[in-house]
């Protein structure tokens, strides 16, 4: 046996692709990074329910309504799986939620954009979920076991999300002129924010390098972004819709699409809380949390009473004897 120090042993395990499990020794920074990343991911799922939930009552057919309900519900489930994964690291859901509600924790900025038409539900499924999947597929191989396992489950469930979104876009792009216009308008508004979902450029990304070393992340922001553009452009062409980027063109030499510069000022502005819906999203979560407090407390009180009754009831005592 070699006598490496704990940190080296840990890195050796990671390099050997051995998963890290909750009770294994890990550097404090690894734990913190994971809690931060997993809980941000969980928050994104939960906040992400809001823009889409916005259209549940207005879904244009019973079939679409069922699909949308199931999809938004999946996001609640994904948030739940992720909070659970964070809890294996010693965090607790309520504390994590507090960080979201007080603005201490971040979530994906994409959900700070409004859903103003039904086509947005299509565009979110197609583009936002499409971008998320790129990231999530990578995360199924993350070095931390519970996170990777949660991501496997999430990816399995997510597979219908993007398809239903594309189906909505297709129906509208091939539909009436007004529907096509709605679809194009949605693409115009969601394209750039979707590219921003991959985060800042690699040179400006604060956490990337260490995360790559720890195999929490396996591809850089720019790599994933390029991959997304490459697969999405033909999908837009099939729809007959135009991606709102005059610089977008196939680069034979690189074997990739070149695309225009992201408006980083807008990106940072939304991250800082100045997006069109930052306030509304947090307010909605705060309201649900506060309005729900008495319900959560009632359930605890009821369970305690039930326990006590078990203890004092003569029948229970007889059974115990």
């Amino acid at each position: 046996m070699t006598h490496l120090n704990l940190e080296d042993q840990f890195q050796a395990k990671i390099d050997a692709e051995t998963k890290i499990e909750p009770k294994d020794w890990m550097p404090e920074a690894y734990r913190k990074t994971l809690i931060r990343q997993i809980s941000q991911h969980a928050h994104s799922e939960i906040v992400g329910m809001l823009p889409e939930g916005n259209w549940i009552t207005r879904a244009p057919s019973l079939r679409r309504k069922l699909i949308l309900l199931a999809k938004v519900q999946d996001e609640a489930g994904h948030g739940l799986y992720l909070y659970s994964a964070a809890e294996t690291l010693g965090a607790n859901r309520d504390e994590l939620v507090q960080q979201l509600l007080t603005g201490k924790a971040k979530y994906s900025s994409i959900f700070n954009y409004p859903t103003t038409s039904w086509a947005d539900i299509g565009a979110i499924g197609w583009l936002v979920d499409g971008a998320a999947i790129m990231n999530q597929v990578m995360l199924t191989r993350a070095s931390y076991g519970p996170y990777a396992r949660a991501m496997v489950r999430i990816c399995k469930e997510e597979s219908f999300h993007q398809r239903q979104g594309y189906e909505i876009m297709m129906t509208m792009a091939k539909g009436s002129p007004a529907q096509k216009q709605m679809a194009q308008d949605a693409l115009n508004r969601w394209w750039w924010p979707s590219l921003m979902m991959f985060g800042p450029k690699d040179d400006d990304s604060a956490h990337s390098e260490q995360s790559m070393k720890w195999k929490i992340k396996r591809k850089s922001n720019d790599e994933l972004r390029q991959q997304f553009v490459d697969v999405t452009v033909p999908q837009a062409e099939y729809l007959g819709l135009t991606i709102p980027d005059p610089d977008l063109q196939w680069n034979e030499d690189r074997g990739h699409y070149d695309f225009g510069e992201i408006n980083w000022e807008e990106f940072w502005n939304v991250v800082k809380g100045n997006g069109p819906c930052n306030r509304q999203r947090i307010q909605a979560r705060v309201k649900a949390y506060e309005d729900g407090a008495w319900v959560r407390e009632a359930a605890v009180a009821y369970a305690e009473k039930k326990d006590q009754r078990k203890l004092v009831s003569p029948k229970a005592q007889a059974e115990a004897a």
Partner: peptide
């Protein structure tokens, strides 16, 4: 459906 995303706890939402 109006509750979706606004329930008192995640498990109740689902």
């Amino acid at each position: 459906g109006e509750w979706c995303g606004h329930a008192p706890e995640l498990e109740i939402d689902m």
